[in-house]
Amino acid sequence: MSPVVLNLIETILNGLMAGVMYSLVALGFVLIFKASGIFNFAQGVMALFAALTLVGLQTGQVPFAHLINAVLGTNLHSFGWTLPAFAAVIGTLLVMVLFAYLFEALVLKHLVNQEPIILFMATIGLAYFLEGFGDLMWGSDVKTMDVGIPSGGSFWWEDVTLGWVAEGSDYYGMYIDRLDVVAAVVAVVLVIVLTIFSQYTRMGRALRAVADDHQAALSVGISLRTIWVVVWSIAGFVALVAGIMWGSKSGVQFSLSLIALKALPVLILGGFTSIPGAIVGGLIIGVGEKLAEIYVGPMVGGAVENWFAYVVALAFLLFRPQGLFGERIIERV
């Protein structure tokens, strides 16, 4: 096979993998929007907060150490222990559930029946609050995420693909990052788990009922407040997964909250209410931007992938405003 073709395949494969990483963020948006009609501006910050909490718990960091030291004059930094990754993940999940409960009790409960824009504004407030709270709790240093996920190119895959070209060709084998492969597997498992939860559990059915019609769900005895806590907890779990993957890639730092920007074109394309849409949208955006960067970028000076993703999304918006898998909006007048 020609190296040119193999390079094209490599670009598409890496685009698909990058798309999965975007989908992981987009999934959190979809879950909350589906269940409550809220566009959660804070999803990116939730991923950051979850990742900070995970690393903090794992490394035995004292939360609010800076504040405590400033007030009490102590010199606390670490508990002196390290937790295994699994225990830290469980601990972080509990924190995210607590966060969901508190957000429902302190904010959402008081905004029932408000316009969606009010709820959206509340999530903007939440984003800024959570970013500052995360800073206060865990500090703003760059932290290393180490939960045992392998990273770096796969030698095995390089060797396999090296055999696909004629000997003496200027080709070095196909590159695939092992972290991206793990992320793809995790995303598949996540979608399966979420689908099973949504289709086959009592809570999942209640969640879908609320998503379909709040008033009708309330009339048959489904507690909206419980559903919101559950949904925000699940979104917290998805944020944790996204935080782990992105944190392993770049270290845990406050720019992690900006990964939400990568999810927006995915949502526009896949639709705000579809879990498969988030996945397929991510894949299309991932492949599209990588192809654009590598094959169009050099002709126009490069750095096209960020805005190209939005161009793709906008093009879809023109033809399918509800996204690929979104529910069609029909209004009779």
């Binding site: 890496n14 890639k249 990588k290 490069g302």
Partner: peptide
């Protein structure tokens, strides 16, 4: 070139 913030650079390094 890498656009701000530079969280995703896969295409550049490929």
């Amino acid at each position: 070139p890498v656009d701000h913030p530079g969280q995703e650079q896969k295409a550049t390094w490929l």
